[in-house]
């Protein structure tokens, strides 16, 4: 089953061997940002999740940071 890793510290994800990697916002809130309004934040989160879902339908041959 394909897996996408949403992660802030991308270099660790690369070191430990994740294949589909999507960079996140920050460690305490990978899919959020306290500086945004709730509506804006949710919109950003949706974009990140949609991007992550797209990686699951993308064939790759090696570790890829999207």
């Amino acid at each position: 089953m394909p897996v996408v890793h949403i992660v802030t510290v991308v270099p660790i994800s690369v070191t430990v061997g994740a294949n589909r990697i999507v960079p996140a916002v920050a460690i305490p809130h990978p899919l959020g940002n306290p500086k945004m309004s709730q509506e804006e934040e949710k919109l950003m989160r949706r974009e990140m999740v949609v991007k992550s879902l797209e990686t699951l339908t993308t064939d790759i041959s090696e570790q890829t940071v999207f």
Partner: peptide, 18 residues
């Protein structure tokens, strides 16, 4: 966890890390 997901017929997983 992977085995449980396979048994439940899950097609793909999103893993989030902090």
């Amino acid at each position: 966890i992977a085995q449980k997901l396979l048994d439940a017929g899950v097609s793909a997983a999103i893993l989030t890390s902090t």
